[in-house]
Simulated assay, not measured.
Amino acid sequence: MNTVQEEVRSGLADIVNEIVGVPLDEVRPEQSFADDLDVDSLSMVEVVVAAEERFGLTIPDQAAAGMKTVGDAIGYIVANR
C-alpha cells in the first residue's frame, strides 16, 4: 500500500472507529463493511458523509453502494481526490 492509500485507510479507520467503535487496527482493506465491521446501512451513510467531508470529495449514491470493502472505499477515494 502506498502512502496515499495508507493515509486514506487511516482516515477511514478513524471514521469507522468513531461511528461504530471498531478498533483502528481492525479496519483493513480486505474487511467488508457489513460482514466484518458490522457497519449497517444507516452507519454506512454516516461513513460516506464523513469520508466526503474528510477527503473533500462527493461520493455519488451509486459509488457508495458499490463500496463493500474498505479497499473499495480506498480505491474510490484515491482515484477521485
Rank of each mutant, 00 (worst) to 15 (best):
N2A: 14
N2S: 15
V4L: 15
E6R: 14
E6Q: 15
G11R: 06
G11Y: 08
A13P: 15
I15M: 12
V16Q: 04
N17G: 14
I19F: 06
G21I: 10
P23G: 03
L24D: 13
D25Q: 14
V27S: 11
V27P: 11
R28P: 06
R28H: 00
R28A: 14
P29F: 10
P29L: 05
Q31F: 06
A34L: 08
D35T: 03
D36W: 03
L37T: 04
V39F: 08
D40V: 03
D40T: 02
D40Y: 02
S41R: 05
S41P: 08
S43P: 00
S43C: 09
M44G: 07
M44P: 04
M44Y: 06
V47N: 10
V47L: 10
V49R: 00
A50D: 14
A50Q: 12
A50T: 12
A51R: 02
A51T: 11
E53V: 02
R54S: 14
F55Y: 13
F55M: 01
L57Q: 04
L57P: 00
T58C: 00
P60Y: 07
Q62A: 14
A63Q: 14
G66A: 00
G66L: 03
D72P: 14
A73D: 03
I74H: 13
G75F: 01
G75T: 11
I77E: 06
